[in-house]
């Protein structure tokens, strides 16, 4: 009986630890996507001049990060506790959430395979990618601070 209890407690601890891992991992993926977008946005905004090298490098980084968005591994059912801004709506609409992740990957891969050649191209690319980010954050993420 005692052993069972200990085993149960251990299981519970590992479960929440692994959730903490999933939460941290998905936030890291999101952050690296955001980071790669920074220099691209600076070009789109006209803050920095168009630089083909910078654009290619960051689109590659963005694509690598986006392809790591493995919904099953990063969004295990119930991982809404602790320091997360993910909403329970994710698991109530898993098919839609998965579809959005797939669409993001496809759009980013497409843009990364045909690197834009000028500022207007970067703006168009960001418009296409950004809709995926905002569209998913609209329903599945809520700011907490």
């Amino acid at each position: 009986m005692k052993r069972l209890f200990v085993a149960g407690a251990l299981l519970a601890v590992t479960a929440s630890l692994s959730f903490a891992g999933a939460v941290e991992d998905r936030q890291a993926v999101m952050k690296s996507m955001g980071k790669a977008l920074g220099p691209l946005a600076a070009i789109a905004k006209g803050e920095n001049a168009f630089d083909a090298g910078v654009v290619e490098q960051n689109l590659t980084a963005l694509n690598e990060a986006a392809q790591k968005l493995d919904v099953a591994a990063l969004f295990p059912e119930g991982s809404t506790t602790g320091e997360t801004e993910a909403l329970p709506a994710i698991w109530e609409n898993m098919a839609d959430f998965q579809e959005r992740a797939d669409k993001l990957k496809a759009d980013v891969a497409e843009v990364a395979s045909a690197v834009p050649a000028d500022q207007a191209g970067v703006q168009a690319a960001l418009g296409k990618i950004g809709q995926n980010c905002g569209g998913c954050h609209e329903n599945y993420r809520m700011k907490k601070n």
């Binding site: 977008l37 946005a41 609209e138």
Partner: peptide, 27 residues
Amino acid sequence: AGDIAYYLESGFTPDFDTVGGAMVAVQ
């Protein structure tokens, strides 16, 4: 001011994030 105007236009924040929640429709 430029960051704010660009956020309202594109949804990208200067801290490498994007718009979310009820602000998406507004943006």
